[in-house]
Design a protein around this nucleic acid. Structure first.
Ligand SMILES: [Mn+2]
Ligand SMILES: [Mn+2]
Ligand SMILES: [Zn+2]
Ligand SMILES: [Zn+2]
Lengths: 144, 144
DNA sequence: TTGAAATTGAGAATCAGTCTCAACAAAATT
DNA sequence: AATTTTGTTGAGACTGATTCTCAATTTCAA
């Protein structure tokens, strides 16, 4: 499904639909959750498909532009992405102990943000909310 | 005021209060708003004080640990910091056109987040909310 | 099928941030 | 006060993510 969107996007810009770009998108769509460019690159090589880091990075930028994926977060170890076509918009809780990511969504929270924007005369387009702390498991561990 | 806190923090850890560390903290406290390591480094040099990039980075890490400053955001051009002792906690709206940053705070929003954490059994410690979009000025420019 | 135009991949370049280590300074011991 | 111990500094090397370069290759409209 994302394949169509991507092809259309590329053609509209006079860009080309190549095997490499298709392989990269396919691999992203066929795996769940968050990912980073380096692991994606390695997974694609493992499958015997040919690609290069340069192409992975270039394609990730294109996929961001066309809205099929999103940059979730820049960390000290690089950028984390996720695909948006599957998931609807959501925010994240990040466990500082184990790195586990909990996804959540609250309509009320979203509305409230819109309200804040209006009050400031700001035209909101997108947002990221990250709550850092400790997940259930890690809270238990700490108690002992 | 932050000077005291920093000295205490350093001593508690068997670390030393040096001219370089004091100069860096002073420069941060005496300037308003957000900053990045490189400009901070340049400002300090301009003043004729002696320092190195290494020391700036090292000291910023210490100041984060002791809570006097915070990493606001990692961008493609590096990390943006701000000092917390002055400002209370707040969130950000970031204009994608001109880079302008609007700070805001909503009690309701904070409470709502606490509620979301409780529902997930997550122990929230801190968070970052960034809303991206267009500020008043840039909205006007776009219309014309 | 052909050729102009876009894309690819290997490796060089860039850039923020960290690390190394010898010279130096602060605290602790004598 | 002199000496020893230990932490800090700064220049520059290093790292790792990402982008750039450019010759070779591929796409696709005609
Ligand atoms: Mn997610
Ligand atoms: Mn701020
Ligand atoms: Zn955890
Ligand atoms: Zn603006």
């Amino acid at each position: 499904m994302g394949k169509r969107i991507f092809s259309k996007f590329l053609k509209e810009r006079g860009k080309r639909v190549t095997k490499e770009r298709e392989a990269i998108l396919q691999k992203i769509l066929s795996s769940r959750g968050h990912f980073d460019p380096e692991s994606l690159y390695l997974k694609i090589k493992e499958m015997g498909l040919k690609t290069s880091r340069a192409s992975v990075y270039r394609t990730l930028n294109l996929l961001c532009e066309c809205g099929l994926i999103e940059r979730v977060k820049k960390t000290e170890h690089g950028t984390i992405y996720e695909h948006t076509s599957v998931h609807e918009h959501h925010d994240h809780m990040l466990c500082m102990e184990c790195g586990n990511i909990i996804e959540f969504y609250s309509e009320t929270l979203e509305k409230l943000q819109e309200g804040m924007c209006k009050r400031q005369g700001f035209q909101g387009v997108s947002h990221t909310l990250e709550i850092r702390g400790y997940c259930k498991k890690c809270q238990k561990k700490k108690r002992t």
